[in-house]
Computed example of a mutant assay.
Amino acid sequence: MSQLGASSWPAEWSDPSRERAEKPRQQGLTMVIDKGLGLHAFEDVLNVSAAYMDVYKLAFGTSVLYPTSLLQRKIALARMHRVQIMPGGTFFEVAYMSDAVESYIATIKSLGFTAIEISDGSLPVNKQRRWQAIGLAKAAGLVVYTEFGKKTAGFTADLSSLLQTLEEDLAAGADYVIVEARESGNVGIFQANGEPDRAFLRDAHIAAGANGSRLIWEAPRKEQQVALLETLGLHVNLGNIATGDVLSVETLRRGLRGDTAPWMFEERGKATCESR
């Protein structure tokens, strides 16, 4: 398996930020979205990018459309490369509406999934039942990612609601809370044109305190990823990253791309001067 430190390049070249940690990481997570890659394409992605991916999501309800044998092979490959893998949150919501949450959790566990997304972005989920589902998933040994926000066009994130969801879901046993932006990146903290609300990001980061590292911000577009890294730092957790963009995001995190290298070196220079 590829490892972050297994490089023939000098460390100061491969990671100018000097901050990137190897897996398993607790922060600086990259969550990848897969809308239907075939097995060979998936294997190629893992061979190139596994060291830089932490969580892999089979988007929406696509998991049920795979032939079972192919699905299990994808899951096995992810596990072999130490990448968490889970179905999309919409699939959980469908199971909830069918009153089959326990069966759903048991099924994805038996297939080999290592994580679950619990959300209410498209369909209504009772809050008490949401917390119960979190507990059941944790008891089954799954890593639990919940989601805050709606997929409805025009949805804007509210700070107090986000902080309440974060506190309640973590108390119920969730590991991380994802902030909805859709795969198009036009809801939540983003305007219809994709522009982020940086003031909201700063306020949320301050108000969340230590729990801020448990938030994952969906940011499918490069300019959104840059804005989050600039505003919240190189250790911010990013979600809904396309399979072909994993290396691109990693270069942004490390200061190996023009969008982040100038300010990263500027900030590092300031820190050096202040320490003298």
Rank of each mutant, 00 (worst) to 15 (best):
A219D: 09
P220Q: 10
P220S: 08
R221N: 13
R221K: 15
R221F: 04
K222T: 14
K222Q: 15
K222A: 10
E223A: 14
E223D: 14
E223F: 15
Q224Y: 08
Q224G: 05
Q225W: 02
Q225K: 09
Q225D: 07
V226R: 01
V226T: 03
V226L: 05
A227L: 00
A227R: 01
A227I: 01
A227S: 13
L228C: 08
L228V: 02
L229M: 07
L229T: 01
E230W: 03
T231D: 04
T231Y: 04
L232C: 15
L232A: 07
L232E: 02
G233Q: 05
G233L: 03
L234H: 13
L234C: 01
H235R: 14
H235D: 15
N237S: 12
N237I: 03
L238W: 07
G239S: 05
G239T: 05
N240G: 09
I241V: 15
I241H: 06
A242F: 05
T243Q: 00
T243R: 00
T243D: 08
G244W: 06
G244R: 04
G244N: 11
G244D: 14
G244S: 11
V246S: 05
L247E: 14
S248L: 10
S248P: 00
S248K: 01
S248A: 15
S248T: 10
V249A: 09
E250V: 02
T251Q: 13
T251Y: 11
T251M: 15
L252C: 04
R254W: 07
G255D: 06
G255Y: 05
L256S: 13
L256C: 13
L256K: 08
G258N: 11
G258D: 12
D259Q: 15
T260Y: 06
T260R: 01
T260E: 03
T260F: 03
A261T: 11
A261C: 06
A261M: 13
P262S: 08
W263Y: 12
W263S: 08
W263T: 10
W263K: 02
M264T: 01
F265L: 14
F265I: 08
E267A: 14
E267V: 06
R268S: 12
R268L: 09
G269V: 00
G269S: 12
K270E: 12
